[in-house]
């Protein structure tokens, strides 16, 4: 048997001491001052992970996301995707192809009036040939479950459907990572579950690394790892069921606890011996006798 050769195994995403400052105008609109939006972030994410990033509005989630595909460059520190530094201009296209990103407002990220044509937009930018393009659009729409929308007018779709079209649009570019910036914040409740299940499917069956940004704490259960941001710093990085029970962290970050963990904490306070990882109704019921 030939010996195994260990080359330098890189994480998919490697962030080191990332600092981002924005220049903001003062109230009088004249003087510029610096505002630190991301403060010394060090983080690595491996292939196939499903990471949720949680934090209240203004905590720096979107800024962090935009650092991942070089929409924002570090003030200091480094962001490396597949070993490619985002500061290097020549990596730009390769990084953006590998890190697909969707945004909060479903309308403001769709370029074409027809679904199929919008999904093609990224592929057209990459210079993919027409036949290959059609095949990739087919595959992407099938994975997302929107084959029936191919020729629909975008203006006739629901918010949830538009988010799915956006995800299909980046999926067709064959990214290794998809970053979804609050995909559910502007869509109705029933489409949320549907959308997140689709994302989970992509992670589990198509080996796509997912970074899901959210300010709804109940959504972190879809992932396997949760990072909590507050004021530009990482204040927690753990499995979701642990995070849900950390009332101190959620309080500190100003995030409301969902009902079940809240109940679990209350029960614990009442002197019941809980394992401490209960996040489902069933697992709590046994303590209620």
């Amino acid at each position: 048997m030939p010996p195994f050769i260990f080359t330098n195994i890189l994480s998919l995403i490697d962030i080191k001491n990332l600092i981002v400052d924005f220049e903001v105008a003062d109230a009088d609109g004249v003087a510029l001052s610096k505002k630190r939006v991301l403060n010394d972030i060090t983080l690595s994410i491996d292939d196939g992970e499903f990471v949720s990033i949680l934090g209240k509005n203004g905590s720096g989630k979107s800024t962090l996301a935009k650092c991942l595909n070089a929409l924002i460059l570090p003030t200091s520190g480094d962001v490396e995707i597949l070993g490619l530094n985002t500061k290097d201009e020549k990596n730009l296209m390769s990084i953006r192809q590998n890190v697909g990103m969707t945004f909060q407002n479903p309308d403001n990220q769709i370029v074409s009036s027809i679904v199929e044509e919008d999904i093609a937009f990224g592929l057209e930018n990459l210079g993919i040939e027409t036949e290959e393009m059609k095949a990739r659009i087919d595959t992407a729409m099938r994975s997302i479950g929107i084959l029936d929308l191919r020729n629909s007018m975008v203006s006739k779709l629901s918010g949830g459907q538009k988010q799915k079209v956006s995800i299909a649009g980046i999926l067709a570019m064959k990214p290794k990572i998809i970053v979804l910036d609050e995909p559910t914040s502007m869509i109705d409740k029933s489409s949320r579950v549907d959308l997140l299940n689709t994302v989970k499917y992509l992670n589990e069956h198509e080996n796509i690394t997912v970074i899901l940004i959210s300010h709804y704490v109940e959504e972190i259960m879809y992932g396997k790892r949760t990072i909590v941001l507050n004021d530009g710093r990482i204040i927690a990085d753990d499995i979701p069921s642990e995070i849900l029970l950390r009332k101190d962290i959620l309080d500190f970050a100003g995030i409301d606890m969902p009902y079940i963990p809240k109940l679990a904490t209350e029960l614990k306070n009442l002197g019941k011996k809980l394992k401490g990882n209960e996040t489902k109704v069933e697992s709590l019921c046994q303590y209620l006798k």
Partner: peptide
């Protein structure tokens, strides 16, 4: 203007740049 700004960012994120020569889905 807010929409235009959002859209410009989303287009850049999908590898749009005025220097690339684009292909067509329906030539």
């Amino acid at each position: 203007f807010r929409r235009a700004n959002d859209l410009a960012i989303a287009m850049e994120a999908r590898c749009y740049s005025d220097s690339v020569s684009r292909t067509k889905l329906k030539p």
